[in-house]
C-alpha cells in the first residue's frame, strides 16, 4: 500500500509538472503589414466591404487599436460582368437606412451601438449590383497605389426538406435543432449554417438582432453527395458559465429559431474551412500551421464571399 502511494505521488508529480507552460518573448521574424479585405455579397443584399490592416503579434490589442484600424479613402468597385458600381464609403454612425442590421452583424456590435462608433466600410444603394442568384461578382480595391481583385459567385440555393426540434433523453425540455436535407447529386455543394432566435423579449424586440454562425459552421458534400439525411446542430448561444452544463448547446422548448443555410462557391468554402480549422487548431503542435488561402489577388488577406441563403423557421416544440 505504501509503495502504491509512492508510485501515485510520483505519477501525480509527473502529470502536474510535465505540461508546464510559460509565456516567453522570442523573435518572430518576417512581419509585413498587409491589407485585409472582408467583403461579402448575398442574394438581395448590397455588397459590403470592410478594409483594415494586419498587425504584428506583439502589437497592442486594445479596442481603440481595432476601431482605428478601419481604412477609409480606398476606391472599391463591384462588377457583375455587365454592371460596374463604385461603392460608397459609409460609417457606422451614418448608415444608409436598411443596412443597419447587416452592418451591425459585420462590425460585430449591436444595432444600438452603431452610432457610438465610427467604423467605416464600403457599400452601395444601387440595387443594380445587389446580389442575384447565378451571377459572378468581381471586387476591385485600389488603395495606396495597389490594386486587389477577387471574384465570387452566388449559386442556386438548396432548401431544407424539413426542420424539427427533438429533446434529448436526459433533458426533456431541451434539444438540438435538426433538419432533413437532400443534397443535389453530382455537383459540388458547400454550406454555411447560421441561426437567429426570433422570440420576442419583454420590450418587443427579438432576442437576436443578427445571425450567428454555429461551431464549425461550414461543410461540403464530400461525404454525402446526393444523399438525403438528417443532422443536428447546436445552439451557439447556449454557452458560458450562466448556462447549466446539461443545457449547453441546446435550445429550450419554446424558442423560435430562423436557420439560414447559405451556399457558397468552392474558393469561399476553402477559405472558410481553413479559417475554422485555424480557429480550432491554432497553437496545436500536432497540426501544421494553417495558412488561410484567399481568393484575392494582389497580396491582401481576407475573403470576398458570395452567399446564397435559404431560410427556414424552427419552432422548438415536439
Amino acid at each position: 500500500m505504501k509503495q502504491q502511494h509512492i508510485f501515485a505521488s510520483i505519477l501525480a508529480a509527473l502529470l502536474l509538472l510535465s505540461s508546464c507552460t510559460k509565456e516567453v518573448v522570442i523573435d518572430i521574424p518576417g512581419y509585413e503589414e498587409q491589407l485585409v479585405i472582408d467583403g461579402q455579397i448575398e442574394t438581395g443584399q448590397p455588397p459590403f466591404v470592410m478594409l483594415s490592416k494586419s498587425k504584428e503579434v506583439y502589437a497592442p490589442t486594445d479596442l481603440n487599436a481595432f476601431l482605428n484600424g478601419f481604412i477609409t479613402g480606398a476606391t472599391v468597385t463591384v462588377s457583375d460582368g455587365t454592371t460596374t458600381v463604385q461603392l460608397d464609403e459609409i460609417c457606422s454612425n451614418n448608415l444608409p437606412p436598411g443596412t443597419e442590421e447587416m452592418a451591425a452583424a459585420m462590425f460585430g456590435i449591436s444595432v444600438a451601438d452603431l452610432s457610438n462608433y465610427n467604423i467605416c466600410a464600403y457599400s452601395t444603394f444601387n440595387t443594380a449590383i445587389w446580389g442575384q442568384v447565378g451571377k459572378t461578382y468581381t471586387l476591385t480595391v485600389d488603395y495606396e497605389g495597389k490594386t486587389y481583385t477577387a471574384e465570387t459567385s452566388i449559386l442556386a440555393p438548396t432548401t431544407f426538406d424539413s426542420v424539427y426540434w427533438k429533446p434529448e433523453t436526459d433533458t426533456p425540455d431541451h434539444g438540438f435543432s435538426w433538419v432533413t436535407l437532400t443534397d443535389p447529386a453530382n455537383q459540388y455543394d458547400a454550406y454555411k449554417w447560421e441561426i437567429k432566435r426570433i422570440n420576442t423579449t419583454a420590450n418587443g424586440s427579438t432576442v437576436d438582432e443578427s445571425f450567428t454562425p454555429t461551431f464549425s459552421p461550414v461543410f461540403d458534400d464530400e461525404f454525402f453527395d446526393g444523399l438525403t439525411f438528417d443532422f443536428g446542430y447546436e445552439n451557439p448561444h447556449a454557452v458560458g458559465p450562466n448556462v447549466p452544463e446539461e443545457y449547453r448547446f441546446l435550445y429550450p422548448e419554446g424558442d423560435t429559431v430562423v436557420i439560414k443555410l447559405s451556399k457558397m462557391d468552392r474558393n469561399v468554402y476553402e477559405y472558410m474551412e481553413k479559417k475554422y480549422t485555424q480557429l480550432a487548431t491554432a497553437g496545436n503542435p500536432f497540426a501544421t500551421p494553417t495558412n488561410i488561402p484567399n481568393n484575392i489577388s494582389g497580396g491582401a488577406l481576407g475573403v470576398w464571399a458570395g452567399y446564397s441563403p435559404s431560410f427556414d423557421t424552427l419552432a422548438c416544440y415536439e
Partner: peptide, 26 residues
C-alpha cells in the same frame, strides 16, 4: 512556424503565418 501577424475577419481573430520555420526555439 509561428504567426507573424494577426487580423480580424468576420469578427474572428485570424493568424497569418510567415516564412516557414523562421522562428527558432531557445
Amino acid at each position: 512556424t509561428l504567426p507573424t501577424s494577426w487580423y480580424i475577419q468576420g469578427q474572428d481573430l485570424l493568424f497569418n503565418y510567415g516564412q516557414r520555420n523562421s522562428t527558432r526555439m531557445s
